[in-house]
Structures are given as C-alpha cells and as structure tokens.
Design a protein around this nucleic acid. Sequence first.
RNA 1: GGCCCCAUCGUCUAACGGUUAGGACACUACCCUUUCAAGGUAGCGAUACGGGUUCGAAUCCCGUUGGGGUCACCA
Length: 474
Amino acid sequence: MQPTVTRIAPSPTGDPHVGTAYIGLFNSVLARQGGGKFILRIEDTDQNRYVADSEKRIFQMMQWLGLTPDESPLQDGPNGPYRQSERTELYGQHAQQLVEGGHAYYAFETPDELTELREKAQASGTVIAVPSRDLDPEQAARRVAAGDAAVVRLKVPHDGETVVNDLLRDPIHFQNAEIDDKVLLKADGYPTYHLANVVDDHLMGVTDVVRAEEWITSTPIHVLLYRAFGWDAPRFAHMPLLRNADKSKISKRKNPTSVEWYMDQGYLPEAMLNFLATMGWTHPDGTEIFDLDEFQRTFKLEDVTLGGPVFDQDKLRWYNGKYLREVLSEEEVVKRLHDYLLAHKSELPLDDYFRAVTRLLIPRIEVFSDFLDKTGYYWSEDYPVNEKAQKAIDNARELLPELAGRLKNLPSFDAESISAMFHAFAEEKGLKLGKVMPPVRAAVAGTLESPDLPQMLEALGQERVVSRVERAGR
RNA sequence: GGCCCCAUCGUCUAACGGUUAGGACACUACCCUUUCAAGGUAGCGAUACGGGUUCGAAUCCCGUUGGGGUCACCA
C-alpha cells in the first residue's frame, strides 16, 4: 500500500472557517494513519475574492488545532509551490494539452451571450450548449493567437455516463448529457477550481480526496478530467456538511464560523477537535472524551455517518468545560487561562492568589471568556452589589460587625477554621447557617451566587474579607 | 425547477435482521449543600410515512414525504 497523501485546499477569501478545520481534521488523521503526508494548498485563483492575510490565518488555525500540515506555502516542500497563483503556467500548459488532445476547446462567448444561452437551456430543460464547441479547432487557435479573448472549456461527451466512486456511499451515476462544458481556464489566464484542483492533486501525489459534500456534483467533471489526462483518479470521500440549527449549510449569519472567534472566546483547541470529531463519527466504545491520538487510533472513514450534523454550540461549550474540569490539570488550566487573559489585555499577575481564584472558578466556567465576568470582586474593591445581595445585607446588618470581629480574630484564615467559626457563631446565636452566611457572601462578593463561602473567604484573604464585612456592617 | 446526496429522541449519535431501540448534550425533578456551579440519581424524549422481502425489520428493496447540496470565466 502506498502512503496516504491528503490535502486541504481552502481559498483565502476571509476568516479561517470551522469547516476547513473540520475537513482538515479528517485529512490530517488519514494521512498520519496512512504513513503519508498532509498538504495545505492555497486555492487563490479568484483574484476578486482574495484576502491578503487569510492564508496566514488559515495556517495559524491549523497550528492552533495541532493539525499542522506537512507541506504548505509557509513551510514549502517537494511539491511546491503551494499557492495556485504561483502555478499558473502549469495550468496553462495542461489546458493546452487538453485542447490539442481534443478534450477541450477554446470558447469565445461573452458573458451576455452566455446568460442568454443559459436562459434558453433552462427553458428547454437541457444543459447549456456552447456554440464555440463546434468551431474549427485550427481557426479557433488562430483567433486566440490573434488576441481574441477566450476561455478553455472541457469537451464533455454528449453520451454515456460518468460514475463517481465515493468511499462513503454507493457509486453515483451522472448522465454526461447533464454535465455542461465547464470552463477550465478563465480569460484572465487563471484556472478554475476544476482544472487547478485536478492538476495539483495529481502532481502532488494526492491519493485520497476527502472534502465536503457540496463537491459531489462537480466530481464527475474531475473524473472526466483525470480520464482526459490519462491519469488515475484518487479515492474520493465526501464528508457531510456542518449545519446550522435549521439544517442549512453552516453560515456566518447563523453561527460563528470563524475559528478565530472560538479562540477569542477562550475555547480550547482540544475541546474543539474532540467536538468536531463527533460530527459524523462516534468512538466505537461510546467514549465522549478522547484526544487526537486516540482519534487517530480508532477512526475509520467507513464509520462516518452521513446525516448533516448540526453544529451545536451548547455541546461544544460542554466539551470545553469538561476539558477544563477533567482533562487538563489545574496548573495547566491556570497557565492557559493566564495566557488568555494576557492576550486580552488583562494584567493579573500569575501568583498564588490568581491560582486560588482559578481553582474556585474551574467548575463554574465553560470557556475562558466567562472568567472575568464572574470574578470582578476578586480584583477590585469597587464591585457591583446586586439587589438580592443588598437585601441580604440589609436584613442582617446587625450581625455583620460581630462577624467581622470574629473573622479578624481568626488565628488561621483557612477554609476549615472559617467554616468552624460560622458553625460556632450560628449555634451561639441560635441561628441557621442560612441566616448568617448570606449576608457575608453578599458583603464580600456583591452577589448571592458565588463559590463555597469558607473557600472563597480563604482565597480572598483575611484583610479583604474583614474590611468588606466591616464596611457592609456600617 | 433539473440533477445529486441524505433521513433513529429538540441536538450529536449507538444498533450492522431478533435489544424493554442504548449513550451524550439540552431540559425537568430529586440528592449533596451555606448560595451558584460541579458531581450523583431519576425522568421526559426517536426509528418520517406507505408498500413489499422475511418466521422476524430501525436495519434489505420500492415509492412518497421531508431536509440539504449543486446548477458561475467562485471555490
């Protein structure tokens, strides 16, 4: 068996897309399983939609996920260049080769003419017939030589059918009569996706083309191209499309689709990867939590399920929280959270206090961006006091001065001692704990929803606690 | 609309002709408890429909319905 060579071929037209990450995951793992290579190729053949930094951001996304390609424009490699805009002569040559072999032809129709032809074809229920197809090849070649604007089109057979073999489904039959003569080389000299993709996949030795389902209908064109070139076609597998909640193809309007958004919200790459892996696939043991290595050990393409999976933000958040609580070590979470905050212009020092607060918050946040929202009172004396908290203080203000005194006199300000103090106090006064703790909680946190009180007080430290309780008692 | 793909709880899915159709997220209740979480337990909840094939169909076949994709000198 020859090594598996896979690729992703995103076009640099905007934000690094979660669908690219999704398809990249499977391609990367397949290549590793097959002892081959995973290539990142940039399909920048549309000059109108080109976004300058997009290519770099796609690469950074892959790195962040731990899916760094083996070859890419940023690393180079034996199959370069990896930017299609730098391979234009190649496509020109190959297009010409097809014209000479009678598999393609020069076409001179203007956009307006094409629109008209398309309308006519639509009305008669047939595929567009391009008049240039019947031009004398030599005459056409002369017109091109003379400088007439022309595109190169594939000469799709009028009869027969083209079969697409897909690793994930039964052979798909397409009637050739229903495939139109696709443009291969545009008038600006750039190739279209169809030509560039086939030429590059072949030249780069790609053995397995794993891409999204939306490509199924253009695959017969690719099969026809491989045949016209006399090349063996790679194996094809079309993955289901990630979906919005309404089942439509995942889109920016209905879902965050930029992986940078997830980075910015403080999602962990491990959680994102784990979640993505469950879109269309389940671990054979039913395990929900598994890492990339485990995925690589157990993944089988044939186990992929074809119903379009809805990209469920709730489930992703749950995964992220799970990783925070159960997969990463506490120290690792501390470190990553601190890095995250640093990148988001927070200047909290990475000290024992930060560690203590983080420890209390780990079960209470799902993503890092939740953290500051829930911890204001740890960092400043100027924290908001909500209505319920104010009420709790007002209702038990008379207890506060004495409580402050007891807290102040505690020789050891640890959770256990603090807890003992509360119990003793409550018993002495004949009060329930539920009567004495809320006002203190409200005083130090400004809210009634916060971590375990003794632990929280220990973390805050005696000085802060005493002054806050004293202040609230006045 | 033509062509193509798909179809189990609201969502992600398990089952690969024989199960009380299982798990996870979400939701609800209870437990734990000083609140909020986390955790634990329980509950709610699905084979789209109609025909076949078979002793037996979520599973195989056909049709219907539904959803999605695609029909560019975009990828």
